[in-house]
Design a protein around this nucleic acid. Structure first.
Length: 954
DNA sequence: ACGATCACG
DNA sequence: GACGTACGTGATCGTA
C-alpha cells in the first residue's frame, strides 16, 4: 500500500445522478420518497470505494457537486444553460440525499457557490497532477475531456484520465481523440466552434463536430481558424465564421474550465480508508437498501463471493408463506437468502415438495440443462420455489464426467420425472417460469407436458417493451432474469458465468458441486416467483392483461411446439450449392485480383475501399463515422455506371452475393441440422422485437433468401418428409391494409375491398397512369408512409430532388386524406403517454421521443409511426397461430404440423391428401384472426401455395 | 466487441 | 452543408 502511487478519484456527482435517474427504476424508500437515482449513486460509490486495493484504484476520493444552477458563467452570459428544463419532479427530492449518501460513506463532498462541479474538478485535478499524483475523473462529461493528459516524468506531473462508470469505460487520450479528432488541449476550441444546445452555448451556427474538428485540426487553434476565414473561398461556412466570430469567442470563454479555484479541502485530506460502518448502516436502513446492507454484513467483498460459501441446508421449510399474487412492496419482501435453499436428494423430500406445490397451487419452476439449445439439452436438475427463500434444487444428472469422483446422491431420473409429472401437468397448479418456452421444450422431451404456465419474461415484455434500452442480451432485449431482478428487486442473482465459467474453462452445469448448484438454481426459481409477484398485478393496473392473456401467453406453448417440429432440409442439396458457390467465388476472386493488380481480401470493406478509391482512383468519397470508405451495395451499384469501374464492382457485387449465401446459408444450415431429429430447429424469441414481432435465431429462418434466383435455390432445400408437402400461407399486403384501416383512408379501403393491386391504384392516384415506373415509385412511396416518411429519405430512394419528393408526399397526403392525421395523432399520443399502442392494446415505449437530439427524436418518431402498424400485424398473426392447430384438429386434421412463422407467413407440413381440406381452414383462421376483438374495415387476403419445397410452395 | 454488410418481412 | 436521412430483425466477416 505504502509504495502505491497516489491516485485521486474525483466523482462528478451531479452529472451522475441525472444519468442514474434516467437509467434506473423509480424505486421508493419505505417513507415513499423516490430513491432510484440515489440507489444507483450509492452502488457506484460502493464499487469505487471497494477498489481501494486494486492496482489502478483510488487512494484518495472526493465527490464534487454543483451548488445550484447558477454560476459565474451566468454573469458572463445570462442565457447560459437557460434551455435546461427543470429536473423531473421525482428527481428533485433526491438531490439532498446524494449529500447524505456521500456523508454516509464518510467521503468528502465539495461544492462552492458560484462554481460548477466541472471547475472544482479541474482545479483539484491540476493540483493533484502538479504533485505527481494520478487522477481519475469519474464522469463522462465531454467538457472535462479537456483535462485528460499523460504523465510527464520531466516535470514530475501525474496522469489524468476519466472513468464512465455507467459504461465501465476508461477515457484516455485515444478516446478523446476518437471523439474530437484533436488532442485534449484543443478540445475547448472544438467545443467553442460547435456549441452545445443543451448548455445553450452558441458556437457557430451550422458548424457541428465534423466541421469544428476539421477546422481546428487544420489550423491548430480557434483563433487561427477564425483568422483564416477572410482568405477562404466564398462559401456559407466562410460567411458564418466571419459573422460568428464573437459568438465563438464567447463560447470559448464559457467552455473554459476554471482551474484556479480555491480548494476548500486539501487533497491530502481525501485519503480513502476503511469506511466506518455506523453511518453507512443507518443510511442504508433508512432507505431500505437491504441488499446493500446484506452485503455489508457479509464483509466488504461482493455479495456473490460472500454468500456462496454457505452450503445448502436441508429441510427447514414448514408450510409457510402465502403465495397469492398480490404485489409485495420491495421493503416487505425478505432479502434473498441463498443459505435457506434445500438440495433435494431423496425421493421422499421430492414428494414432499411436489405435495406442497400442489397444495399451494402456484409454483415457480426452473430447469437446469447441459446446453443452451433446448432441442439438444439434457435435463440436469429442476428447481422449485413456493415463496421468498422457500426454494429447492433437485439435482438429477450431476457428476459422471469425472469417473474417479463419486457421484452425489440424487433421485433417479425416472423416479423424479414420475414424481414431478402429476404436479407439472395439473390444471389446478400454475407453473411460473422465466422464459418458459425453453423449459417447456426441455420438459416435453422428458415426457412432461407442462400446463398451465405463466411467464415473467413475456409479462415484462408486454409491460415494458422499448423501455429497458441499452441493456441487451441476445434476443432478450432487457427482459432477461438478471436485468429484471436488478430492476424490480434490486437484487443481483448469481450469474451463470460465475458458476460455470466462460470460454474454454467453462464446465457443464452437471459438474457444479451441489451446494453451489443449489444456490444458483434455486435462486432462479425464487427470483422468478418474486418477479411474478411484482409483474402480475402491474398487468391489470397498467392495461397489459389483454395483450398478455389474449395474444402472447397462449402463444408460448404454440411456438414451443413449432420449435420442436423443426423443418427438414436436404443436406446433399445444400452441400452441392456450397460447392458451386465456392467455385464461383474463387473464380471471381481471382478476376478481381487481376483487375485490381494485386491480391487483397475482397471481404474486407476497408481493403476494398482503398483499392477502389485510392489505388484505382474512382470517385465515391468517404462517409461514415469511422472515416472508412463506404462500399455497400448502393455505392458499388452507382460506381458501376462507369464502365471502367464496372469491370471490378460488378464482380465484387457478385462475389458478395455468393459468399453471403454460402457462409450464412448453405454452409451454416448444414451445421444446424439436429443429429437426433435430422431437422433444423430454430429458436423464436417472443421478446426480441420491440413491436411485438417474433424473431428467429440459431438459425434465423426468417431471412432465408427469396429475392434472387440464386438465393431461391436455398429455399429448394427446405423440404417435406415423404408423402407430405409444404404449404405456405401469407397475408397479402397486411401492413398497408392495416394502415388503410387505422388511418381511415377511404380510397385505399375501397381499393382493397375491390381486390385491386394496391400499388397500381396508388400510381393512378399519384401520377394519373400505371406504368412499370409509376407503379414502382408508388410502391416505394407506400412503404415510405409505413416507415414514417422524410422528404430526404424518399428523395434518396427515388433518386429525385428533395423538393420533388416533398411534392409527392403532399400529393399523397392529399389523395389519401387520413394518413397525415394518423401520423400527427400518433405522434401527439406517443408524446403525451410515452408509448404507442396496437389495435389489440400492445404497448411499445419510446423513451427518446422527447430527446433534444434531433436525429434521435426523429428516429423515435418514425419508429412510433410504424410500431402500431407492424405491431398490429404481429398481433394478428399470433392470434392466428394460437387458434390454428385446434381449428385443424376440430376438422379432424391431426397430421398438419405448423413449422415456421415469417412475420406475415406461416409454413405447414402436411400429408398430401390433407391439402384440400386444410387449405380453407388455414385461410379462414388467418383471415378472421382479428375477430372478435377487432373488426377491420378491410378484408385480410391470404395467398396459399403448396409444393415439394418451400420455394415451390410460393 | 463493434461496425459494415446484407439476408428477410 | 448541418446531428440524420425509411420501420423491424439476425448472421457473418474483418478489424480493433
Amino acid at each position: 500500500m505504502s509504495d502505491k502511487k497516489q491516485h485521486l478519484y474525483l466523482v462528478d456527482g451531479s452529472a451522475y445522478i441525472f444519468r442514474a435517474y434516467h437509467r434506473l427504476p423509480p424505486l421508493t424508500n419505505p417513507q415513499g420518497t423516490p430513491v432510484g437515482a440515489v440507489y444507483g449513486y450509492t452502488t457506484m460509490l460502493w464499487k469505487l470505494a471497494d477498489d481501494l486495493d486494486a492496482a489502478d484504484g483510488p487512494t484518495h476520493l472526493a465527490v464534487i457537486l454543483d451548488k445550484d444552477s447558477k454560476s459565474f458563467r451566468n454573469d458572463i452570459y445570462p442565457e447560459y444553460k437557460a434551455n435546461r428544463p427543470p429536473p423531473p419532479e421525482d428527481l428533485r427530492p433526491q438531490f439532498p440525499l446524494i449529500r447524505d449518501a456521500t456523508r454516509a460513506f464518510s467521503l468528502p463532498c465539495i461544492e462552492e457557490q458560484g462554481l460548477e462541479a466541472d471547475d472544482l474538478i479541474a482545479s483539484y485535478a491540476r493540483e493533484a497532477q502538479r504533485k505527481g499524483w494520478d487522477v481519475t475523473i469519474v464522469s463522462s462529461d465531454k467538457d472535462l475531456m479537456q483535462l485528460v493528459g499523460e504523465e510527464n516524468g520531466a516535470n514530475g506531473s501525474g496522469r489524468i484520465d476519466m472513468l464512465d462508470t455507467m459504461k465501465s469505460q476508461r477515457i484516455y487520450l485515444d478516446e478523446v481523440h476518437e471523439k474530437f479528432g484533436v488532442t485534449p488541449d484543443l478540445v475547448g476550441d472544438v467545443l467553442a466552434l460547435m456549441g452545445d444546445s443543451v448548455d445553450n452555448i452558441p458556437g457557430i451556427y451550422g458548424v457541428g463536430p465534423k466541421t469544428a474538428t476539421k477546422l481546428i485540426a487544420e489550423h491548430g487553434s480557434l483563433t487561427a481558424a477564425l483568422d483564416s476565414a477572410p482568405d477562404m473561398k466564398k462559401s456559407k461556412l466562410k460567411e458564418r465564421l466571419l459573422e460568428g466570430r464573437e459568438a465563438a469567442e464567447l463560447s470559448r470563454v464559457l467552455v473554459t474550465l476554471k482551474e484556479d479555484c480555491d480548494l476548500p479541502v486539501a487533497i491530502e485530506d481525501m485519503a480513502l480508508g476503511k469506511i466506518p460502518e455506523g453511518p453507512l448502516v443507518e443510511f442504508l436502513q433508512t432507505h431500505g437498501f437491504t441488499s446493500l446492507l446484506k452485503r455489508l454484513g457479509a464483509g466488504t467483498g461482493s455479495p456473490e463471493r460472500a454468500n456462496n460459501l454457505n452450503p445448502a441446508k436441508a429441510d427447514k421449510n414448514g408450510d409457510k408463506g402465502s403465495v397469492e399474487g398480490n404485489r409485495q412492496p420491495l421493503s416487505e419482501m425478505p432479502q434473498v437468502d441463498r443459505s435457506a435453499y434445500e438440495t433435494v436428494q431423496t425421493l421422499e423430500r421430492l414428494q414432499e415438495w411436489t405435495r406442497r406445490a400442489t397444495a399451494a397451487r402456484l409454483v415457480a419452476v426452473d430447469t437446469e440443462t447441459s446446453s443452451l439449445d433446448a432441442m439438444q439439452a439434457d435435463l440436469v436438475g429442476v428447481s422449485l420455489a413456493l415463496g421468498p427463500n422457500d426454494a429447492c434444487y433437485i439435482p438429477l444428472a450431476h457428476g459422471g464426467t469425472d469417473l474417479l469422483a463419486e457421484k452425489p446422491d440424487q433421485v433417479a431420473m425416472a423416479d423424479a420425472i414420475a414424481a414431478l409429472k402429476p404436479m407439472l401437468e395439473d390444471d389446478a397448479v400454475l407453473k411460473v417460469f422465466q422464459n418458459g418456452k425453453y423449459d417447456l421444450n426441455v420438459l416435453e422431451r422428458s415426457g412432461i407436458s407442462v400446463s398451465p404456465i405463466e411467464d415473467t419474461m413475456v409479462m415484462s415484455f408486454d409491460l415494458d417493451a422499448g423501455r429497458g434500452e441499452g441493456m441487451s442480451a441476445k434476443g432478450i432485449g432487457g427482459h432477461g432474469m438478471d436485468e429484471l431482478s436488478e430492476r424490480h428487486l434490486g437484487h443481483t442473482p448469481l450469474s451463470f458465468k460465475e458458476i460455470c465459467g466462460t470460454g474454454k474453462k467453462a464446465i457443464p452445469f452437471g459438474e457444479v458441486p451441489l451446494g453451489r448448484a443449489t444456490e444458483y438454481a434455486a435462486e432462479d426459481a425464487d427470483v422468478t416467483l418474486r418477479l411474478y409477484r411484482m409483474l402480475k398485478p402491474r398487468l391489470s393496473e397498467e392495461g397489459g392483461t389483454s395483450i398478455y392473456e389474449r395474444v402472447d401467453r397462449p402463444l408460448i406453448p404454440v411456438v414451443a411446439a413449432m420449435e420442436r417440429e423443426g423443418i427438414k432440409v436436404d443436406r446433399a442439396r445444400l452441400a452441392k450449392l456450397s460447392e458451386e458457390f465456392a467455385g464461383e467465388t474463387a473464380r471471381l476472386e481471382k478476376e478481381i485480383h487481376e483487375v485490381a493488380g494485386e491480391e487483397f481480401s475482397v471481404g474486407s470493406p476497408k481493403q476494398l475501399g482503398e483499392i477502389l478509391f485510392e489505388k484505382m482512383g474512382f470517385k465515391g468519397g468517404r462517409k461514415g463515422k469511422s472515416g472508412a470508405y463506404s462500399t455497400d451495395h448502393a455505392t458499388l451499384e452507382k460506381l458501376s455506371s462507369d464502365p471502367e469501374a464496372a469491370a471490378i464492382t460488378k464482380k465484387v457485387l457478385e462475389w458478395r452475393h455468393l459468399s453471403k449465401l454460402k457462409s450464412t446459408y448453405t454452409d451454416a444450415l448444414q451445421a444446424q441440422i439436429n443429429p437426433y431429429t435430422g431437422r433444423v430447429h430454430t429458436s423464436y424469441s417472443l421478446v426480441g422485437a420491440q413491436t411485438g414481432r417474433l424473431s428467429s435465431t440459431d438459425p434465423n429462418l426468417q431471412n432465408i433468401p427469396i429475392r434472387t434466383p440464386i438465393g431461391r435455390q436455398i429455399r429448394e432445400a427446405f423440404v417435406p418428409e415423404d408423402g407430405n408437402v409444404l404449404l405456405a400461407a401469407d397475408y397479402s399486403q397486411i401492413e398497408l391494409r392495416l394502415a388503410a384501416h387505422m388511418a381511415d383512408v377511404g380510397t385505399l379501403k375501397e381499393a382493397f375491398a375491390n381486390g385491386e393491386d394496391i400499388h397500381s391504384r396508388t400510381a393512378t392516384e399519384m401520377f394519373g397512369e400505371v406504368t412499370r415506373d409509376t407503379r414502382a415509385r408508388a410502391k416505394t412511396i407506400n412503404f415510405a408512409i409505413l416507415y414514417g416518411i422524410s422528404r430526404w429519405g424518399l428523395a434518396g430512394r427515388l433518386e429525385v430532388e428533395p423538393d420533388e419528393a416533398q411534392a409527392m408526399i403532399d400529393t399523397y397526403f392529399q389523395r389519401f386524406p387520413g394518413i397525415q392525421r394518423y401520423i400527427s395523432e400518433t405522434l401527439t399520443s406517443v408524446g403525451e403517454r410515452g408509448y404507442s399502442e396496437t389495435l389489440f392494446g400492445r404497448k411499445t415505449w419510446f423513451p427518446r421521443i422527447k430527446s433534444k437530439n434531433q436525429a434521435e427524436r426523429q428516429g423515435s418518431e418514425r419508429a412510433a409511426i410504424n410500431a402500431p402498424i407492424q405491431g398490429t400485424s404481429a398481433d394478428i398473426i399470433k392470434r392466428a397461430m394460437a387458434r390454428m392447430l385446434p381449428a385443424l384438429r376440430d376438422a379432424g386434421l391431426k397430421d398438419v404440423r405448423m413449422l415456421l412463422q415469417v412475420h406475415d407467413e406461416l409454413v405447414f407440413e402436411l400429408p398430401e391428401r390433407d391439402v384440400a381440406a386444410a387449405s380453407p381452414i388455414i385461410e379462414r383462421v388467418m383471415a378472421e384472426a382479428a375477430l372478435p376483438s377487432v373488426t377491420l374495415d378491410v378484408p385480410l387476403a391470404i395467398d396459399i401455395g403448396t409444393g415439394a419445397s418451400w420455394d415451390a410452395a410460393h
